[in-house]
């Protein structure tokens, strides 16, 4: 809690106003702003798609290709939803990529034991989710009650979770042969792969949680101004802990998805995913200093990056060019955000 104001510029009044605006009933302005921002993202996505259709034609526009984009987006998408909550609440979670690796390895270790034959594969999934949740809780307790700066606490988790994953897996790839689990992820429902369904379900649940529940409003208040939130009777420490637990749980889900997609648990799973997730969240319009979050924007941000990857691969362009394009997109998005924020501040 104490670390959060330190990371925030000193325009206290504006932020208190913003926090109170979003915590109380006047949500009209907030919604309006979000719609405007999302429109910008939709335009960017459409422009990318048009570019894809022009350069790759049928190959880009086919249903198979769209599903490929969505499958690529889904793991990072789920992580980004969790990350949206943490960032909206004024924090940062650098550990999600490592926790994906740890939970996938923990679950695959369980799956490759002989006991796997006697138990349902749900146990394995439950294990991965519990590992993710546990790692998130550790982060949360350290940050909320141990008063460790979020950046440092989750950086420590990033390093140690990866190390623990390597110890558990002995740096080897563990192949999952549990048929029920593999079939579940191979299945399509109404032509849409299971991975994408999970992303959709998590995104919808995240949207409801952030926009339609007390939990969501508290998150925005805590991120906007923790002191005001505390005075308003919100248990800020406990809430902060919940946010990291939520992000950990999302990483656990991501671990299960990686298992389903690769049919193997490896300590190298999810490397640098935290950066992809943070980039998607920030490009989506969630403020890095907290107090404002948008699930729709995050989903659009994830889709923009995975479509970009797809278009570049379609056109046989190099990784280096793509990295440059990604960087430009991030900077442009943040610059636009600042302009919008300034205009809305001038308007109030």
């Amino acid at each position: 809690m104490t670390d959060i104001p330190a990371a925030v510029p000193a325009d206290e009044s504006a932020r208190i106003e913003k926090a109170s605006r979003s915590t109380t009933t006047t949500r009209k302005g907030f919604l309006h702003g979000a719609t405007g921002r999302n429109l910008g993202l939709v335009i960017a996505l459409v422009a990318l798609c048009i570019f894809g259709v022009i350069t790759a034609g049928e190959r880009f526009a086919s249903i198979d290709n769209v599903l490929t984009i969505l499958r690529l987006a889904s793991v990072i998408g789920v992580l980004s939803i969790g990350m949206t909550f943490v960032i909206t609440g004024g924090g940062i979670d650098l550990s999600v990529g490592s926790v994906v690796g740890l939970s996938s390895v923990w679950a695959s270790t369980l799956a490759t034991q002989t006991m796997a034959q006697d138990t349902h594969w749900i146990v394995m999934v439950g294990c991965a989710l519990a590992v993710g949740l546990g790692a998130g809780l550790v982060n949360g307790v350290l940050i909320a009650y141990g008063r460790v700066v979020a950046f440092i606490a989750t950086l420590a988790m990033l390093v140690s979770a990866r190390g623990l994953a390597e110890i558990i897996a002995n740096r080897q790839t563990q192949i999952v042969k549990v048929q029920g689990f593999l079939d579940f992820f191979r299945d399509d429902v109404i032509g849409i792969p299971m991975l994408v369904w999970i992303f959709v379900v998590v995104a919808v649940a995240g949207w409801i949680l952030l926009n339609r529940t007390t939990f969501g409003r508290r998150t925005i208040a805590v991120g906007g101004n923790p002191e005001a939130a505390r005075l308003a009777g919100i248990k800020v420490k406990r809430h902060t802990m919940y946010l990291y637990a939520l992000s950990g749980l999302a990483a656990g889900i991501g671990g299960v998805m990686m298992l389903g997609r690769t049919t193997a648990g490896s300590s190298t799973n999810g490397q640098l995913y935290e950066l992809d997730a943070i980039a998607a969240v920030v490009v989506g319009g969630t403020l890095l200093i907290g107090g404002r979050g948008t699930i729709v924007g995050t989903v659009l941000g994830v889709l923009i990056f995975s479509t970009l990857t797809n278009v570049f691969t379609q056109n046989n362009l190099s990784i280096s060019a793509q990295a440059v394009a990604k960087g430009v997109i991030i900077v442009v998005a943040v610059l636009l955000q600042q302009r919008i924020a300034e205009r809305s501040r001038a308007g109030t």
């Binding site: 290709n65 793991v75 997609r261 799973n269 640098l272 990857t309 691969t313 793509q322």
Partner: peptide, 20 residues
């Protein structure tokens, strides 16, 4: 396809090859 150490991305590259 771009060189990558992310299996998730490499899988999607192969999926694209199949689509193409």
């Amino acid at each position: 396809a771009e060189a990558t150490n992310d299996v998730n991305l490499q899988i999607s590259q192969v999926e694209q090859f199949i689509n193409d």
